[in-house]
Design a protein around this nucleic acid. Structure first.
Lengths: 117, 117
DNA sequence: GCCAGGTTCCATGTGTCACAAGGTAGCAGG
DNA sequence: CCTGCTACCTTGTGACACATGGAACCTGGC
């Protein structure tokens, strides 16, 4: 049912690296709930994920103290759990920005994709 | 045994994304053997890996037909298994370059690390 | 010879994590 | 009520980086 996921598997592995911190980055702009995050990330090329990915991820971030949550009523539908960054979360995000830039430049250099832009 | 692997674990997850294709990229410049690759990658910031990582990775690339190998004698030490890119490997590398650039730009945009370098 | 130490390869076990699939619950509208 | 949507979460599977340990081969000292 899912054999040839060729270049798809590659993207999955790529996502692993930055996805959690991309979520943190989105939350840095204001609180969001799980379903909403899926929509926001779906608009970003190469970051489309599903519920089975986002909820375990958010649980982990919460367990690590990088985000905190609050339940809020909805006009139409069940209540939502909103996530927002903690101070630790902001620190983790700042650290990651540095790690990411170093890694990105290394890969660009090896691949020869660093040139223009 | 080592729970607090804080920012280290992050780098491991980052590596996962591009490491196999970075190996392909190095091999695109000429054939190399396993131990040599460890040294080459160690010089690239954020890509230092060990034998336990490189050999399973190379086996996988071989199984997928992206690299092929040949044994060659060494002046000093046991024989070496040299790896070089196949046509499929070159194709995979080219595909990955595109995937990588799209992904990289997406992450840069979300993190706000994209402003020309 | 033979033994210590370096080089090179590989296999096994563990832990992390993305994802698919499925399950629960609240809120509509016919 | 009952179909369908929104929203959350859990469980099982599989991929893969890494640590550890070991085998095979070479060299140099004695």
């Amino acid at each position: 049912m899912e054999p040839g996921g060729d270049s798809n598997r590659t993207l999955t592995q790529l996502r692993r690296g930055a996805l959690p911190h991309c979520v943190l980055a989105v939350l840095a702009d204001g609180e969001r709930y799980g379903f909403e995050l899926i929509g926001v990330l779906a608009e970003a090329r190469g970051l489309a994920i599903s519920e089975g990915t986002i909820y375990p991820l958010l649980s982990r971030l919460r367990r690590e103290g990088l985000v905190e949550t609050s339940w809020q009523e909805s006009d139409s539908g069940p209540p939502r759990r909103y996530y927002r960054l903690t101070a630790d979360g902001e620190r983790a995000l700042a650290n990651f920005r540095e790690d990411w830039q170093g890694y990105r430049d290394t890969v660009d250099e090896l691949l020869g994709t660093g040139g223009r832009r």
